Simulated assay, not measured.
Amino acid sequence: MHIQEEISERHVLSLTVSNEAGILARIAGLFTARGYNIDSLTVADITPDHAISRITIVTSGPPKVIDQIIAQLERLVPVHKVTDLTDNGPFVERELALVKVAGTGENRIEALRLADVFRAKVVDTTIESFIFEITGTTDKIDNFVGLMRQIGLVEVGRTGVVGLIRGKESN
């Protein structure tokens, strides 16, 4: 008998929730209690009256686990809607990072050249370092950080992924 391992897939989930105290802790607790990992989590208020927030969660797992996560999230009372952006058709996702790089001489020139290639913007500079701002997909930011690590990476701060469905449809 051959047991086939299920392939883990990356999914971007978008939740609209009531802005209630403790909702983020409840959602994180749901993941923790079941041993699911959160790769990225962002939260933003999306209504003028501050009543609703959008939470974007990036997680990975086999399709059955992702379906379980979605079903369990949908059962939480302050959750209005859960959308799996990954399975819902074309969507745009972006992440922002601040990347501090130290370097002088050739390393400094190379850091600026790579920043230009990646369309990273210099937001702070000293004689011995830069802080770059870069937006894009997680892969783009990972690649930029990896290259800067070879030059003199000091520190990285990342926002996490946000995503929206393309076109007129809402999530």
Rank of each mutant, 00 (worst) to 15 (best):
Y36K: 00
T42D: 00
L15E: 00
G167I: 14
D116I: 09
G163V: 07
H2N: 12
R119D: 06
E74G: 06
A115N: 04
E110D: 04
F31D: 08
L76I: 15
R94C: 08
E93C: 04
S129Y: 05
T126W: 00
A102P: 02
F91Y: 12
M1Y: 10
G105Q: 02
T159Q: 13
T56S: 07
L112V: 13
D49R: 02
G35C: 05
D45F: 08
L96V: 15
K81F: 05
R26K: 10
G105Y: 03
R54V: 00
G160E: 01
T135W: 00
I151L: 15
G163L: 07
T104A: 07
I131Q: 04
V12P: 00
F132C: 07
G61H: 09
F31Q: 02
H2P: 12
P90N: 14
T138F: 01
T138K: 05
D87S: 14
F91R: 15
H50P: 07
L30D: 08
I23A: 05
R108T: 03
V82Y: 03
T159P: 03
L30G: 00
L30H: 02
D124Q: 13
E110G: 03
V161T: 08
D139A: 14
G103Y: 00
T59S: 10
I141A: 05
M1V: 10
N171G: 11
L98F: 12
A21C: 12
I66T: 08
P62F: 03
